[in-house]
Amino acid sequence: MTRLPYLKLVLATLALGTVISVVMLQVDWFGDAAATAAGPIDTLMEFTIVISSFVFAIVCVALGYALVKWRVKPGDEGDGLPIHGNTRLEIIWTLIPTAIVLFAAGYSWVVMNDIEDKQPDAMTVNVYSQQFAWTFGYPEAGNKWSEGEFHVPVDQQVIFKMHAQDVIHSFWVPEWRIKKDNVPGITTEAVITPNEVGTYQLICTELCGAGHATMRAIVVVEPREDYEKWLAGLDGEVPEDLLLTADQAIELQKQLQGTEQGIDSSGVDETSAENVDQS
């Protein structure tokens, strides 16, 4: 059994891993960044790319070396060496990957806590989604509302509280790196601090029906004065029927039960709403 050229193999792996990492890191994978979450997320991605490049390099070098070195010569009908395993090696390639993925999990946890950290001065924007339109409410500005477009001040943490009226939708602004499903019946939250002035697109990323691909809205991040001006130009309050939360839905159902177009117009008594709730 010839000894493996360990040094050459290690050097080849390091070289290939470095080359792949460097090439991969040249590319701006996530595109433009426009929120504070993008920094730590993009760094985490770069860390993952480097680790992955070396994993890929290890496999490619090992596979390439094996194919070059032990590819059978024509006519050779013999067998390879009857090596059944190597306990030490097997322990190594169990423990080292375990350590790497646990580190990656810990790192991700730190990043997650970092990007979801709420500031005391955060403002709230309500997001209402329905097939196939977005509506936005500003509870701190007299519950004014806008349709198909929303503005937020730059460098201000915003907590988006999301509500869906019919099916599940999902809120995604790629430049902000944050995505959250809007789920009928519950309120979900996303914490975002936009830090680049500009106009972006809000994209629905949960299949919601025929209009899913076109369910988009305009996102404007602007200096606070411009934002205040825009807000002042809005009028009215968020329409009642957009304000459905789970509790309100039950209330609504109670009211509807008395009417013909009730969701459950089978003539059950008024207490059935509670019964539904309990079941």
């Binding site: 059994m1 493996l4 496999v59 090992a62 596979l63 094996a66 194919l67 032990w70 590819r71 059978v72 050779d76 013999g78 067998d79 390879g80 060496l81 090596i83 395993g85 190597n86 090696l89 097997e90 390639w93 169990t94 990957p97 375990t98 993925v101 646990l102 990656a104 999990a105 991700s108 946890w109």
Partner: peptide, 29 residues
Amino acid sequence: MITTLLIAVPTGIKIFSWLGTMFYGKIHT
């Protein structure tokens, strides 16, 4: 997330072991 990443470990074991199988073999391609 932790269990999801950990599942990469047995999967990795399989890939490394296939490579180990090829080392010192007579590889027919």
